Amino acid sequence: MADVDVALAGRSYRVKVGPGLLERVHADAHSFIEPYGKRAVPVVADANAKRLHGERLQASFRSAGHSIDWYEVAPGESSKSWDELVRLTDWLLDRGVTRSDHVFALGGGVVGDLVGFACAILKRGCGFVQLPTTLLAQVDSSVGGKTAINAPAGKNLIGAFHQPSLVLADTTCLATLPQREMRAGLAEVFKYGILGDADFLARVDSESSAILACDDATLESVIAHCVGMKARVVAEDERETKDARALLNLGHTFGHALEAETGFSDRLLHGEAVALGMVLAARYSARRELISLADAERVADALARAGLPTEISALGLDCDGSTLAHHMRNDKKAEASTVPFILLRAIGEAFVARDVELADVAAFMDEQLQAH
């Protein structure tokens, strides 16, 4: 088992990665469960995650004399909404959750984001524990304290920074994921290499088959590496007031625009959008002569070898580049009249560019929509 500290002043927490952690929740999260006494512990779960892993978690709690009060969330981005947030906070209030209590989140990034935001605002803040069950959540969204819901104007526009008290990433959960979901998570693994570690990118490229096959040793090592990279960034720049944490958004400004245009639906999973966004960021970097076109295509080729989408023309979008650029204008990272983009000076060397003209991005996107 790997153990990573997220070092924040007065609020540090641990991220544990490895097989069989759901069977150990009662022990690893003892200090957050024990205060409930005879009260049932609130667990908010993605409906699929509950069906697949609920009994394992229930058995762990039962072994320590505790029961679970379940709240089910429908799978998919549509659950990151005002309506679901209201239902969840009312449910937690009806159960008398206090500021000193901890709510458990079982599922992927949608559940983690929803529960984290609900806990950020409930009675001005209560605790929560992340039990991520998808690769994307284990390597990225469960760590770092970004919580949010979506709005008609865009993705993750309403939220708060609220760190979990503990993250337990059980790698055995990943064996139940459809390959499409695993590949979507793998996009975020590639991201860490593309933005800041070229050697890690080469490793992920060579080990992608083992990752997708859910080899426990490979998963534990790779996930821990990603979490370690993110933990260092979060410790340096928790609230993204400097450029350090912004680099973790590589691919996301382009990707979120594609998600918005596809209606935040299963037509394009978040990780797939990030994969496309990273290819676009690399090609746009080449357009600006920051990297060679050959290096940009190296990024695309690595993602394609893992079965990830690399051409937006394949989406069959009924829009032009200006429409996609307009979605980017509504991105939560927009600053006054500009939108910062994460671009590449080299593979493994990302930076924040604040001089990008959206009109040029629109023209670039028109080219990409018609390419290949």
Rank of each mutant, 00 (worst) to 15 (best):
A64L: 09
G263Q: 07
H26N: 14
D360I: 01
V17G: 11
D360N: 04
W91M: 12
G321C: 11
H30V: 00
E238F: 00
P178R: 08
H372W: 13
A7M: 04
H30P: 05
I312T: 03
G255P: 09
A137K: 06
E259Y: 07
A105N: 08
T147E: 04
H26W: 05
G18P: 03
F117S: 07
S337H: 10
F264H: 06
K191V: 04
R180W: 02
R267N: 02
S292F: 08
Y71P: 11
E23H: 11
T338Q: 14
M229K: 15
E238N: 10
T176Y: 03
L157A: 00
D140T: 13
G54A: 05
V339I: 06
E259V: 01
S63Y: 12
D301V: 00
F200T: 08
H372N: 14
D216F: 10
H225L: 09
D266Y: 03
S265V: 07
A294L: 09
S221Q: 14
F351M: 14
V234K: 01
Q130G: 05
S221F: 10
A334D: 03
P178K: 04
R62H: 10
F128S: 00
G307W: 10
E34C: 07
D360S: 01
A105C: 00
V234D: 04
M328G: 10
V233Y: 10
T89I: 13
V73R: 01
L195D: 09
I149F: 00
A7L: 01
A325L: 06
G228T: 13
S60C: 02
E207L: 11
G108I: 03
K123G: 12
G316C: 12
E55N: 15
V25M: 09
F161H: 04
G185N: 04
K333E: 04
A363W: 02
D170S: 09
H327M: 09
E259R: 06
D331Q: 03
D215R: 14
A286Y: 01
K191Y: 06
A334V: 07
P19K: 14
L93S: 13
A306L: 14
K230D: 11
E272Y: 04
A202R: 04
D83Q: 07
L88K: 05
E220V: 12
R329E: 02
E207N: 05
E357T: 01
W91T: 11
T134H: 03
H53C: 00
A137M: 06
G112T: 10
S142N: 11
N150D: 08
N48V: 13
K123N: 15
G18V: 03
S165D: 15
G107H: 01
K50T: 14
G76H: 06
A120M: 12
R305C: 12
R283V: 08
L324Y: 07
V234S: 08
G185D: 02
L219G: 03
A9W: 02
F364I: 13
G116T: 05
S67R: 09
D320L: 03
D197T: 12
E349Y: 11
T262Y: 02
D360P: 02
K16D: 15
V189P: 07
K155F: 03
Y36M: 14
A244S: 15
M328F: 08
R245T: 10
A2W: 00
E84D: 13
D318Q: 14
D243G: 11
